[in-house]
């Protein structure tokens, strides 16, 4: 039940209901702290870009193995405060996934369990507006892992830079017309989206670099598509 859209769900009532029903302290503390105001102007908001690397693509089966978080504002990205963790999956890491993220079995040998670092991760997420590129990875993996391990639902509003990209480059009249005429849809993958804003090409697939890349992409999208009067409630979902 993680198919939720906070552009049509009131966060404050959702949050207080969740806070009341949470079984586990970690989750309850998160809901207690996460008092986001949808009417906060974009330029005053604190964001955090979040990225996971996982053992596969199915949230119900696969697990998170690394977490990257980069806090930022519309103006500046603070690398000094960026954080990252490797976390040890409970199931054996498939050899072919090593090819994708470059994280090896040996790297994970000494890593903590996700539950050991979850408090730290949620402390950061609760104080900021979370930004991801493609919400179905970060939201769904976090949801399923917390539910499997703690039995609670963990859901919160996200800004998805891929959805913003899709909106401006796929759902506008011009883009639709182009596709009707047989044109290929514009790619909204992270690297391709960044290219449209003159952002440099990074070697992707490290949680930290992807989080940074996502933060930069949102900064660029804000500068290009949104004026200062917009509020975070207009962007999140």
């Amino acid at each position: 039940m993680c198919d939720i859209d906070f552009s049509s769900v009131d966060w404050e009532s959702f949050r207080s209901a969740q806070e009341a029903s949470a079984q586990h302290d970690t989750v309850r503390r998160f809901y207690q702290a996460c008092k986001l105001d949808p009417n906060q102007p974009i330029k005053k908001a604190s964001f955090v870009a979040l990225d996971f690397e996982t053992t596969g693509l199915t949230p119900e089966v696969h697990e998170i193995i690394s977490v990257g978080m980069v806090p930022f504002t519309a103006g500046r990205i603070q690398l000094n405060d960026s954080r990252s963790w490797l976390v040890k999956p409970r199931k054996q890491l498939a050899d072919d996934s090593v090819l994708i993220h470059g994280i090896t079995h040996a790297d994970l040998e000494q890593a903590p369990d996700l539950m050991e670092v979850l408090d730290d991760i949620l402390a950061v997420l609760a104080s900021k507006v979370v930004v991801v590129h493609f919400k179905y990875i970060e939201r769904d993996f976090l949801y399923h892992q917390v539910q499997q391990r703690l039995g609670d639902e963990l859901l919160f509003p996200l800004i998805d830079t891929m959805a913003i990209e899709a909106f401006f480059h796929r759902q506008q009249i011009g883009a639709k017309l182009k596709r009707l005429l047989g044109g290929k849809p514009v790619s909204i993958r992270l690297a391709d989206s960044r290219g449209r804003y003159g952002l440099p090409r990074y070697p992707l697939h490290s949680a930290m670099t992807d989080a940074l890349a996502t933060a930069e992409l949102l900064q660029a999208q804000l500068r290009h598509h949104y004026d200062d009067s917009r509020v975070i409630g207009d962007l999140w979902e």
């Binding site: 103006g75 500046r76 603070q78 690398l79 000094n80 804003y197 940074l212 933060a215 900064q219 660029a220």
Partner: peptide
């Protein structure tokens, strides 16, 4: 240095 710097995006003309 890479962990301590900040990053900012500026649109053409800003």
């Amino acid at each position: 240095l890479a962990t301590r710097l900040e990053v900012g995006y500026y649109r053409s003309g800003n």
